[in-house]
Amino acid sequence: MAPVLGPLQPLVDMITSPLFLMIVLFPGLTSIAIIGALLGWLERKVTARVQLRVGPLYASPAGGILQMFADLIKLSFKELFVPENSDAFFFIMAPTTGLVIGAALVGLIPFAPGLQIANIEVGLPAFLAIITLSPSLVLLAGWSANSKFPFIGGLRALFQQTAYEIPLWLSALGVIMMAGTLNLAQIVAAQSTGWFIIPQALGAFIFLVTSVAEMERLPFDLPEAESEIMMGWQAEYMGVLFLAAQGPGFVKLYAFSALFTTIYLGGFLGPTFLPPLFWMLLKTLVIIVLIMLLRSTFPRVRLDQLLRAGWTTLLTLAIVNIGITYLLVVGLPTL
């Protein structure tokens, strides 16, 4: 194309390039913010329906769907200050970086053929490695606030990580053994003959349980347990920082449901009369609602129960799953 705009041409080229549009619009920033706010509304609505309540109702004609946007505006206009004796830099840095980490996960997910920000060869381990940072940020937030409830919440996040981290990685290993690749787009392509949830049913169950623990959602929301330690590590946050502390929960819910869909439910594969993106978002929505129903169904576990279950039951089941997958891929040993 001839440079007709003079010095502005490189800028226009950058803004109209597909990668820039993906980063800013669909799998990237804008859609993540809108989907995160809508998931906040959906969670309140689903929980309300389970408990025979109405939930958000007045913020728009369509069942209060704009409630979270109203909350967002309200929180932006609240005063912002840092508690005394706290480490201001890390106090502000921890939730901000948490928001970035949560949104960075979405960039690794293939939403449709070609509709993926970064097609990394090691996509699945990269996703799990990025998410590993988030309990450390929770501990940092709890430590820097210099207050008792956030500190207890941060330490709980640290101990909780030891319980779920290894079963999470080992259940993902089953998928890698079946597919023979670490690339998420190639894992989807490997499922064209059959979704991995059928041979990997046990692994999918472990992955779902441990990813709920990773997202710190009920029944594993020990670091922020409202009724025990007053929102835990989020207790001292206010205004925009509270928003930044709450937001990653919904963004991680979106990212983990999309990852579960990608590695177990065939990703964007589906009947061809509708576009692949539709199937991807439909399956992701089903997993999101399933995880929201878990929140309404189960009570919170204790920390020692979670640690013992993670290190004995979940770890044993993950190793059994690796054994089953080994027999499926290699076959029975011939003596």
Binding site: L19, I23, V24, G28, L29, S76, F77, K78, E79, L80, I92, T96, T97, L99, V100, A103, A104, G107, L108, I117, A118, N119, I120, E121, G123, A126, G239, V240, L241, A244
Partner: peptide, 28 residues
């Protein structure tokens, strides 16, 4: 894919920090 994810994370970081600074200075 490494440059793409780097650009993406950099963009996220800059826009998140800019959002919080703008809200802090102008709105709250």
């Amino acid at each position: 894919g490494i440059p793409e994810i780097g650009a993406y994370i950099g963009f996220l970081f800059v826009s998140t920090v800019a959002l919080i600074i703008v809200l802090r200075l102008l709105v709250t």
